[in-house]
């Protein structure tokens, strides 16, 4: 039972020193860092930073740093609570079995306390340092990720990441709100872009780790509806994402630099999605277009959001 994973009975995952039964081993601080999913956090921080940088108005560097820190901590808290809740599912998946909880390097209570504590801390710090509207959006994003996505949607419906994708789309809104105290058309457009980017991104991954999800009992689209439907849906959501990516320039919220970058980067995304849609490979080890789309989708978001900032600075200069 993973709940008592850190009560050592023989050997720990971190050490081969034999321990007597019932001796609690304190989790290593690196495992608390791992619990926050630092790699996922980089994308969250980057999109939040871009939202903050393009917002009109001024925020002192220390407050801007604090706002980004709060976004990062909030994302880390949500990730910790997600892993606290999903320990049994993570243990059943090859991709996640080495995480601190399923691997037995940390007990569930520590993860829960860490996640809840970090959630309150990030929201309160955001409120005191910037404004309470940004803090409220941060709180909503954490609650949405934990309760709506992790607990409600993920184990129940193949549309889990379509609706749940909203949780990951909040950072540009929060970054913007930290500066202005409100939201406007551009951060909402950026929110929509991440929202519609999420399905092709996750379904590309889900195609080549389908058995992992099936073993864990998670009703991801390839598991429930099959690979052909998933490939079609990737193409469908890519087309909506393309519209969302071009919307800021069509609405004259951004300039030519963003427009050209969005056009080229989204064009490449569409070609890769089309290759996935046309692929009939069923062996996950041979799903090259799917892996290519998944990797490119991460780069795509960095490119698009980077272009928003560069475009904004060039226009302002």
């Amino acid at each position: 039972m993973a709940t008592n994973a850190s009560i050592l009975t023989s050997e720990t995952a971190a050490s081969s020193v034999p321990m007597p039964a019932g001796v609690p081993m304190p989790a290593d601080w690196r495992d608390f860092v791992a619990l926050t999913k630092p790699r996922v956090m980089t994308l969250v921080v980057f999109t939040g930073l871009c939202g903050l940088l393009v917002a009109p108005g001024h925020l002192s560097p220390i407050l801007a740093f604090t706002a980004i820190l709060c976004i990062a901590l909030g994302a880390g808290a949500a990730a910790a609570l997600n892993q606290w809740y999903e320990v049994d599912r993570d243990a059943a998946m090859k991709r996640t079995a080495a995480r601190p909880l399923p691997a037995g390097r940390m007990d569930r209570a520590s993860a829960l306390h860490f996640g809840v504590g970090l959630s309150f801390f990030s929201v309160l710090l955001m409120g005191f340092a910037t404004n309470w509207f940004a803090a409220a959006i941060l709180a909503v994003s954490i609650l949405f990720y934990v309760f709506v996505y992790t607990i409600w949607l993920k184990p129940r419906t193949a549309q889990n990441i379509v609706i749940g994708g909203a949780a990951g789309a909040f950072p540009p809104l929060i970054g913007w709100a930290a500066v202005t105290g409100d939201v406007a058309a551009l951060p909402i457009a950026l929110f929509m872009l991440i929202f519609f980017w999420t399905p092709p991104h996750f379904w590309a991954l889900a195609l080549f780790v389908r058995m992992d999800y099936a073993n864990a009992g998670i009703p991801m689209l390839p598991v429930v509806a099959g690979e052909r439907v998933t490939r079609r849906q990737i193409l469908f959501y890519t087309s909506i994402m393309a519209a969302a990516a071009l919307a800021p320039v069509l609405m004259q919220l951004t300039g030519l630099i963003y427009g050209l970058t969005a056009l080229i980067a989204t064009g490449i995304f569409a070609v890769l999605a089309f290759q996935v849609a046309m692929n009939r490979e069923t062996d996950p080890a041979l799903m090259v277009p799917e892996r290519r789309l998944f990797k490119y989708s991460v780069l795509y978001l960095f490119l698009i959001f980077g272009a928003v900032v560069v475009d904004h600075w060039v226009v302002r200069a």
Binding site: T12, V17, P20, D28, W29
Partner: peptide
């Protein structure tokens, strides 16, 4: 408990305390 086990727990507590002290100092500055 074996001396090795005690030492392992102490080492882990020590590293956690150092990290916590660094975090608290960073928060003071922040």
């Amino acid at each position: 408990m074996t001396p090795e086990g005690q030492e392992l727990i102490r080492a882990r507590q020590r590293s956690r305390s150092i990290v916590m002290a660094l975090i608290l100092f960073a928060l003071v500055v922040l």
